[in-house]
Nucleic acid binder design. Structure first.
Lengths: 178, 178
DNA sequence: CTACGTGCAAATGATTTGCAAAGAT
DNA sequence: ATCTTTGCAAATCATTTGCACGTAG
């Protein structure tokens, strides 16, 4: 009664947390960039905000709000849920994070210090494979031009099944027939 | 205090309701296809469900739940909100509709009798331009193959500004600086 | 008949917000 | 000193669900 395709949660297997692309050289640290943003917007640079930003840019790649809250709690870094939401919105506005939607979950990933890329999302295990394609870039540029459309950003998620999940295994769950 | 990019609602200017691609030849009517689906799933073919399906496939292209409810109410076609939600889910499961996400809104479009295509979404006016690209298809196929990923479907939305909205007008709203 | 579908009102779940207290410039 | 941010609890919004009644097969 509640399937409507697609995995419900990001998997806890660490897969979605692992960056797969080389970092990109950056002039300022994410924290400095965020400071700059707060400054321009006349917002205050508080300890709570910095804690969250520092934590996010320490290691995570893809995460959702609950994963972030839980892992911060584990590490005894205090942060309330509303402040996390508020800060994530600031970080998206600041261009430091990108908000993603895989299946049902809202996830976040680094948008700064990490190359622009697209996602192959496995509907079976919830895993994400990242890829970069200049050809895709050129193609979308040219299509946009044909329509006199000025592209700013894009969201591309190819949904399907990854290698691991398409290999039949002994213990694989029975597929939902139909 | 509540902007975070992007238009909030599909515009009422009829733009997003207009199909821009030629229809595709189909063997059965959407209603028949839905009947078949209900039959396979051992679900009942009720008057309410048929009303909704008929109405949706009569003309709409892109719509959200509220638009659908309101326009059905205008035409005196009875349908309760829960039943509309339930039926939309069935139609998505049946492959007759595709669920889309533009900005904040969840929209639906015909997936049957209408070619597969991608979207250019104007963040200013909320308008949608549809396009088809075989080259994109080939490219994503080949990228998937490289990653031993079996693609099933995809979501691509290029966000940007359409021709009309990028032309400066007398009465254009002031842009949010920053 | 009998099980499934319907509409209502109420529940849900993710995200946001009002407010009093705490903090930054 | 002043105005923003915080955390809490409560509000919100879209969507889903429990239930008593209606209806398709």
């Amino acid at each position: 009664m509640a399937e409507h395709g697609v995995a419900e949660k990001l998997p806890p297997d660490g897969r979605s947390m692992t960056p797969s692309l080389p970092n990109v050289p950056i002039a300022q640290s994410p924290v400095d960039k965020f400071r700059e943003f707060l400054d321009i917007k006349k917002l205050k640079c508080t300890e709570e905000r910095l804690r969250i930003v520092r934590y996010i840019f320490e290691a995570h790649q893809h995460f959702d709000v609950d994963q972030l809250l839980e892992s911060m709690r584990e590490k005894k870094i205090p942060a309330s849920r509303p402040t996390v939401y508020r800060t994530l919105n600031l970080l998206v506005d600041a261009g430091l994070l990108r908000r993603l939607t895989f299946g049902e979950t809202t996830a976040y990933e680094h948008a700064y210090g990490y190359p622009r890329h697209e996602h192959l999302f496995c509907e079976r295990c919830g895993g994400v494979i990242e890829f970069v394609s200049e050809e895709l870039d050129r193609l979308l540029q040219s299509i946009s031009r044909e329509h006199r459309f000025r592209p700013i950003s894009r969201k591309l998620v190819v949904q399907g099944v990854c290698e691991k999940c398409s290999k039949p295994t002994a213990d694989r769950r029975k597929l939902d027939l139909i």
